[in-house]
Computed example of a mutant assay.
Amino acid sequence: MTIASAVIQAFTPTGVLRAAINLGNPILAHADPVSGAPGGVSVDLAQAFARRLGVELRLVVFDAAGKSVDAVGNEQADIGFFAIDPLRGAHIAFTAPYVLIEGSYLVRADSPLQRNDEVDASGLRVVVGKGSAYDLYLSRELKNAQILRAPTSPTVVQTFLAENADVAAGVKQQLEADIRDRADLRLLPGRFMVIQQAMGCPKSRGEDAARVLGGFVEEMKASGFVAQALQRHGIQGAGVAPAAD
Rank of each mutant, 00 (worst) to 15 (best):
T12D: 07
T12Y: 05
T12M: 07
P13H: 10
P13C: 06
P13V: 09
T14P: 02
T14A: 12
T14F: 03
T14E: 06
T14K: 14
T14D: 09
G15I: 10
G15L: 12
G15T: 10
G15H: 12
V16R: 14
L17C: 05
R18C: 00
R18N: 03
A19D: 00
A19W: 00
A20G: 12
A20V: 08
I21G: 01
I21P: 00
I21D: 00
I21N: 00
I21V: 12
L23S: 00
G24P: 06
N25K: 03
N25W: 03
N25M: 04
P26K: 06
P26F: 05
P26E: 09
P26V: 12
I27E: 02
I27Q: 01
I27R: 02
I27N: 06
L28C: 09
L28S: 08
A29W: 02
A29C: 02
A29V: 03
A29Y: 02
A29M: 01
A31M: 04
A31S: 15
A31R: 15
D32I: 03
P33I: 07
V34Q: 11
V34K: 14
S35K: 10
S35A: 04
G36D: 12
G36H: 11
G36I: 15
G36M: 12
A37F: 07
A37N: 10
A37L: 14
A37W: 05
P38N: 03
P38G: 01
G39H: 07
G39M: 08
G40Q: 06
G40V: 07
V41I: 15
V41Q: 05
V41A: 04
V43Q: 00
D44G: 08
L45M: 14
L45R: 10
L45A: 08
L45C: 12
A46M: 07
A46G: 13
Q47R: 15
Q47D: 08
Q47A: 13
A48H: 11
A50K: 06
R52F: 03
R52N: 12
R52P: 05
R52D: 13
R52Y: 05
L53K: 14
L53W: 11
L53G: 14
L53N: 13
L53F: 09
G54P: 06
G54L: 11
V55C: 08
V55N: 04
V55L: 08
E56R: 15
E56M: 10
L57F: 12
R58T: 14
R58M: 11
L59M: 10
L59P: 03
V60H: 08
V60M: 11
V61K: 04
V61R: 04
F62E: 01
F62Q: 03
F62Y: 14
F62D: 01
D63E: 15
D63Y: 10
D63A: 13
A64V: 08
A64D: 13
A64G: 13
A64S: 15
A64Q: 15
A65P: 05
A65W: 04
A65K: 06
A65D: 11
G66V: 09
K67S: 15
K67E: 15
K67T: 13
K67Y: 11
S68L: 04
S68R: 08
V69G: 06
V69P: 07
V69N: 07
V69R: 11
D70T: 15
V72D: 02
V72P: 03
V72I: 15
G73Q: 02
G73Y: 04
G73I: 01
G73V: 02
